[in-house]
């Protein structure tokens, strides 16, 4: 089976200024994104990840290289019919209601008239936007805009969903909600490509990651593989007394192991925030 996205030797140069100076945004990038996984594309601002996504979607032309989506040449209508996209900080027609927008996008994506109503309600349900779907988009909060953007991206049941900074400007509760949507899509067997700066979230939701810098790929692999330190171990112990600690250290040292640090486990500020505001929605 072909990859969800296959990028081979992709290069993109932008011409800037009157003299047409060349700016290389993507430099000989090759990537294979497998199907059915959540794939994180990471990197600092200007590293070329958004340009790469735009080229994949046919919004920007490549200077060199080949790209295919689900085995089809990218930028073809057939490839885009099987792809959903949520751009960074999306802006939609303020006068449309959420439901009208999702319906409009479903129509443009080729959803048959007979399936339209069901597809729209399913997408709104997945994005937890049923209740607010009748309101004009101009009245939505940032988190709701991202969620309705997610709904329009998945309304035609695409096999591949590309999300560019889906949690930018969204609070941790909204961010967690988007994380749940991503997991729900993966559970349905979809491939999700996620471009984000929020490394903590990427770590939580992605199966594989690629890190780009200055247009080049610097690291690629399964999250577990790239983050694990196989030569170190962590134990979490309850009710440890000084005597128990000394005995444990002695026992470990007797077997040639060395205890390098003992600290109290911490929860993340994001976990604490979500715990404190449980149940609240950003509606």
């Amino acid at each position: 089976m072909s990859s969800a996205i296959s990028v081979r030797h992709l290069t993109k140069d932008f011409r800037i200024g009157i003299r047409g100076l060349k700016l290389r945004a993507v430099d000989d990038l090759s990537l294979e994104i497998p199907r059915g996984q959540v794939y994180g594309l990471l990197g600092p601002n200007g590293c070329g990840k958004s340009t790469t996504l735009k080229i994949v979607l046919g919004l920007v032309s490549a200077t060199a290289g080949e790209i295919s989506i689900l085995g089809e040449p990218s930028a073809t209508s057939a490839a885009r019919r099987r792809t959903g996209f949520l751009p960074e900080a999306p802006y939609f027609h303020k006068f449309l209601t959420g439901r009208e927008l999702v319906r409009y996008c479903a129509q443009l994506s080729g959803v048959a008239s007979a399936d339209l109503d069901a597809a729209v309600e399913d997408a709104l349900g997945l994005a937890a936007m049923n209740e607010a779907a009748g309101r004009p988009i101009g009245t939505y909060s940032k988190g709701m805009l991202q969620r309705i953007g997610f709904a329009q991206a998945v309304v035609h049941d695409p096999e591949l969903v590309i999300l560019d900074e889906p949690t930018a400007g969204v609070d941790p509760v909204g961010s967690a909600s988007i994380g749940r949507m991503i997991h729900a899509m993966r559970d349905k067997g979809k491939t999700i490509v996620l471009c984000s700066h929020l490394l903590g979230q990427v770590e939580q939701v992605c199966d594989r990651v690629a890190i780009m810098d200055r247009g080049k790929l610097v690291l690629e692999g399964a999250v577990e593989d790239v983050l694990s330190r196989r030569d170190r171990h962590v134990m979490t112990i309850e009710a440890m007394t000084p005597a128990a600690r000394a005995a444990a250290e002695a026992a470990l040292e007797a077997h040639g192991a060395k205890v390098t640090s003992i600290t109290h486990p911490r929860r993340s500020l994001e976990d604490l925030f979500r715990e404190l505001v449980t149940g609240s929605r950003d509606a």
Partner: peptide, 14 residues
């Protein structure tokens, strides 16, 4: 400007 075109042109729309 506001990227609505990005959303629309990423769909099977010429």
């Amino acid at each position: 400007d506001n990227k609505t075109a990005l959303t629309l042109l990423a769909k099977p729309l010429s």
